[in-house]
Amino acid sequence: MTKSVMIVGVGGQGSLLASKLLGRLLMDEGFDVKVSEVHGMSQRGGSVVTYVRYGEQVYSPIITEGEADIIISFEKLEAARYAAFLKKDGKIVVNTQQIDPMPVIIGAAEYPEKVLNELTDKGCCVEALDALSLAEKAGSSKAVNIVLMGKAAKYFHIPYDKWIAAIENTVAPKFVEMNKIAFDLGYNA
């Protein structure tokens, strides 16, 4: 059975590294893997989504509504934007950071502050954490992606050591220690 993971956020937040790490880890675990990335115009501060799918044999590289096992969101509003993609009993792991989109900035729309509660009320399993603070605690706001991977790790049934090895294989050597701390902070959050 193919598993579907979505990594969503705002262009520039570093979701490509998260998908690279996850893709590599899952391939090393013996799965067939497909990862669909976003390049070009939408990277400029727009809403971005990366699809990661794994299983015995994966055909489609993308995910449709009602299909995602896990949504890992780098931002609150983006979690809600893609909630329709979640399958029944799927999980949302979300960074509580709020980044205003342009329609909110210019006052043409309102940021729905309580949007995560709405999803919980409808039976969604939402695990929210302040990944930005944890990343800063680890040493860099850029480590938000690894904090979130740490938090989501338990849903993948892959041993802890394999995650750490994947970080060592994916991240530039000088950032490995900091990212290991970030992973642990998410893992234990």
């Binding site: 501060g45 909630a83 329709a84 993609f85 989109p101 729905p112």
Partner: peptide, 20 residues
């Protein structure tokens, strides 16, 4: 088709790309 999907009640404002 599998019909399951859940959405938030609030209007989700779009997040178009923009100049940095």
């Amino acid at each position: 088709e599998d019909k399951y999907s859940v959405t938030a009640d609030s209007v989700i404002p779009p997040r178009p790309p923009m100049m940095c």
